[in-house]
């Protein structure tokens, strides 16, 4: 059984079937890519996984426990972190503070009234955050206000915030969209490096096929809310159904 088991999940928005009978199994320690044309329901699927949406039917089992009906913070504490399609960071805080917050969340859980400690005196937390920023090559920007960063840097920051939690499952929604080629390659290298240094499972949504084929060990193609095929990367490329979905020819 996989780390994540999605079974028969359906979600309708009014008349629109955003997810139709989605079945997905993500094996532990693999990188699983989910691809598909715009509006296929990829982000909606992630929203179900992190507790932002509750599906109409179906079940989602993570690490042997049901995710459905839990609050977003509980799901994160179970070990799922998500990078959003449009960067979600703390714009008013500094880059360093953005990374400190997930460090505290990891050490202290979902709430602690640590009103009399001083942030900067928590050495091991500050070290952990600074190490993470070094890893993503942002350490020299640590005192900048996060909202002043470029779009690419914001994405990298958000990724650092998720990675520093050392989640069991990392969900990435188009992590390289809006990045320059060089940054995209850096991101690929970073994710490969993370993967090589410790056990982590990733589900990655991506339109950039270069990224997908560099990282993915397993690919699911989603179209109009339903998985078309799931296979190893080398079998996906030439698959007729995939071509059809991407060229938008389906009339059935």
């Amino acid at each position: 059984m996989g780390l994540l088991e999605v079974k028969n999940v359906n979600k309708r928005f009014g008349g629109l079937q955003a997810l139709g009978d989605v079945n997905l199994s993500v094996a532990e320690n693999t990188v699983h890519a989910i691809i598909g044309p715009n509006g296929a329901g990829k982000s909606t699927l992630l929203n179900v996984l992190v507790g932002k949406l509750i599906p109409d039917t179906g079940s989602v089992i993570f690490d042997g426990q049901s995710v459905l009906g839990r609050k977003p913070h509980e799901i994160n504490q179970m070990g799922i972190s998500r990078v959003f399609q449009t960067p979600e960071i703390f714009g008013d805080l500094t880059v360093l503070e953005n990374v400190l917050i997930p460090c505290f969340a990891r050490r202290d859980g979902s709430f602690k009234l640590h009103a009399f400690e001083t942030v900067m005196h928590e050495r091991e937390i500050v070290d952990m955050a600074e190490q993470m920023l070094t890893d993503v090559h942002m350490i020299e920007k640590r005192n900048l206000q996060a909202s002043t960063l470029s779009r690419g840097d914001k994405r990298r920051l958000e990724m650092a915030m998720c990675l520093v939690q050392q989640p069991k499952l990392l969900l990435l929604d188009e992590p390289t969209a809006g990045m320059a080629r060089a940054d995209t390659n850096n991101t690929i290298d970073l994710l490969k490096e993370i993967k090589a240094t410790r056990p982590i499972t990733m589900a990655i949504i991506e339109h950039d096929m270069h990224v997908v084929f560099s990282l993915a060990e397993r690919i699911t193609v989603l179209a109009q809310g339903t998985p078309l095929v799931e296979d190893a990367p080398e079998n996906i490329k030439g698959h007729p159904k995939v071509q059809e979905a991407y060229l938008g020819q389906s009339h059935e």
């Binding site: 913070h73 994160n76 960071i89 917050i101 969340a105």
Partner: peptide
């Protein structure tokens, strides 16, 4: 301050606001 800046992100970072 994070609550003021982005409450959503705080929730998805495992903190109960």
């Amino acid at each position: 301050r994070a609550v003021k800046s982005n409450q959503q992100r705080l929730n998805y970072t495992g903190l109960n606001t």
